[in-house]
Design a protein around this nucleic acid. Structure first.
Length: 278
DNA sequence: ATGACAATCAGAGATTGA
């Protein structure tokens, strides 16, 4: 009698489909959004969730809620504002909490980790400064932050590894990424200088995952709470996944979970997610 | 030009966001 090969009995810690689902979600406050976030995690079942604007000290982030759902947790928080976190069903390694280039910058906007599934993927979770009002110190901070991001992006490209930088970029890349672009022409999210810095990063060789999979206009990731923006579908696409070539080669899918915006007590952003091979 | 709306910290209303 032939025996089954031993390899067939190995149990792998990832899904049978051999894809990894990674989502990015600006939750606009973990205290106000914990329940909605749990509901979405149970439904969407991301392997990794990159969260922005947790608006919480790291020690006050309710990590146990997510550990109970099977997630490892890494947090880079601060009091009241900003703050990023990563939930991962796969092991989290080599955590970095600062974007290089300015030792004086103490705003919690960066969380970089390695997630090891079939292969290691370097994942950078970012919350890029809004920059309004313009001109002024907040806009200067946004542009200098983007120049630091460009330096980091160059290093990722040079590393030739599967990696991405994802999160709330606070950048409307093109006119077709807004329902009413005229309202944004003087805004830090769409000013030519902002978009030029974004293009400089793309031009290093990054792929905008959403645009790799969708050509049409009318896809948004943010709708303002004010003036009935959601009811009028007056949105903008400002949450992005930028993939290195080695990561873009793994891209299977990219979608925006638009329906989340119509729920009770929603964030003003909705999740965007990718699926990668392996 | 302003506010509209929401979250946080604090315990009222200012600050921040986009």
């Amino acid at each position: 009698m032939l025996q089954a090969p031993v390899v067939a009995e190995l149990v792998f810690p990832f899904k049978e489909t051999n894809t990894v689902k990674i989502a990015s979600f600006n939750i606009n406050g973990i205290k106000a959004r914990a329940n909605a976030l749990m509901t979405w995690l149970r439904e969407a079942q991301p392997d990794v969730a990159l969260l922005q604007e947790i608006k919480s000290l790291s020690e006050n982030f309710p990590s146990d809620l997510f550990k109970d759902l099977g997630y490892n947790v890494a947090v880079n928080g601060q009091k009241s504002f900003n703050g990023v976190a990563i939930l991962s069903k796969l092991p989290i390694e080599d955590i970095v909490t600062r974007l290089p280039g300015d030792s004086e910058d103490d705003q919690a906007r960066w969380l970089e980790v390695t997630i090891v599934g079939n292969q290691a993927i370097r994942m950078c979770n970012l919350y890029l400064p809004n920059g309004n009002p313009t001109p002024g110190p907040k806009y200067d901070y946004k542009l200098s932050w983007m120049r630091r991001l460009h330096e980091k992006a160059k290093q990722l490209i040079d590393s030739e590894i599967p990696a991405f930088m994802a999160g709330d970029y606070n950048i409307i890349p093109q006119a077709e990424d807004a329902a009413n672009i005229g309202a944004w022409e003087q805004d830090a999210l769409f000013l030519p200088e902002s978009r030029a810095e974004f293009r400089k990063i793309l031009n290093l060789g990054f792929t905008d995952a959403f645009r790799a999979k969708h050509n049409s206009s009318g896809h948004y990731s943010f709708w303002d709470y004010q003036a009935g923006a959601w009811d009028r579908d007056d949105g903008i696409r400002i949450d992005h996944f930028l993939l290195t070539p080695q990561c873009a080669d793994l891209l299977k899918n990219c979608q925006i979970d638009k329906h989340i915006r119509s729920r009770e007590k929603p964030s003003d952003h909705v999740p965007i997610w990718i699926e990668l091979d392996g």
